[in-house]
Amino acid sequence: MWSGFPLRPEQASTIAQGIDQLYFFLTAITLFFTFVIFTAIFYFAIRYRRKAKGEIPGQIEGSLPLEIFWSAVPLVLVVVIFVWSSSLFISNSRPPEAATEIFVIGKQWMWQLQHPDGAREINELHVPVGKPIKLTMTSEDVIHDFFIPAFRVKKDVVPGRYTSLWFEATKTGRFHLFCGQYCGVNHALMIGSVVVMEPEEYERWLSGSRKAETMAASGAQLYERFACITCHGAGKAPPFNDFYMSQVKLSDGSTVVANEEYIRESILYPSAKIHAGYDPIMPTFKGQISEEQLLQLIAFIKSLGPQERKSE
């Protein structure tokens, strides 16, 4: 590749190469058919150019075999591409079991990132090389989008819900982090870097970074401060041991999985889905609790639960 004029961004994650292979295959198909059509047009236009005014060429209505042929060729091609692309997409969308979870909050116009041990950063994400990382993301205002071109990953960051993406960096270095979804005046300034480090170096960075306590510990404090404990710790409301990702029976007879989304909803809109066997006595914490505190409470509940099974 001509280094001064690259045709693709750096490949710095486990999925980048697979995406690039598909991309260059599609590029080859595009160039091939563009060449075929341009050549045919030029050849016909010159070979059959009008030689005399008023000449009337022989008339051709069409050809069924040709129509079938040039419908079948694109059909076969798009089926191949669809299968290739979709299987790649499905395998790329599943985070590995052992991924380290980092929380992301987007707001106009900055990224706030929280490591599980409590380290916090703004617009810069430090991660170890060769370790799968899962981001759980939400927004405080409009829709943002977390985009790391060198990793070929991108996901919208949506207010009012959690989205996630994962990657495993294969190269140390500093890579662009962009907000992909237009989010207002300073959209183009909502950028930063992902810094990929050797694992030891990452540990050093973690221990050196200013932090108060782990996310779960902050959550445990909130659990007391918001007086959750007075009901959830006393049998008046469901306890949280082994709660995360468990099947929760609701008062209307249906079942939900106690994932991040459900926990968040239950804190903000307690009456939306009532746990069977308990009275709907919980007040709403909407407006009193920040996105960051919600994530800390979720981290706390996770820490009481079984080891994370599947997140989606």
Binding site: Y23, I81, F89, N92, D145, K154
Partner: peptide, 18 residues
């Protein structure tokens, strides 16, 4: 033809909004 890059899931994740 370049629409195929965007109909295709794996590549569109990278290309979306670029």
């Amino acid at each position: 033809l370049t629409g195929m890059f965007l109909a295709s899931l794996a590549t569109d994740i990278h290309l979306h909004d670029t």
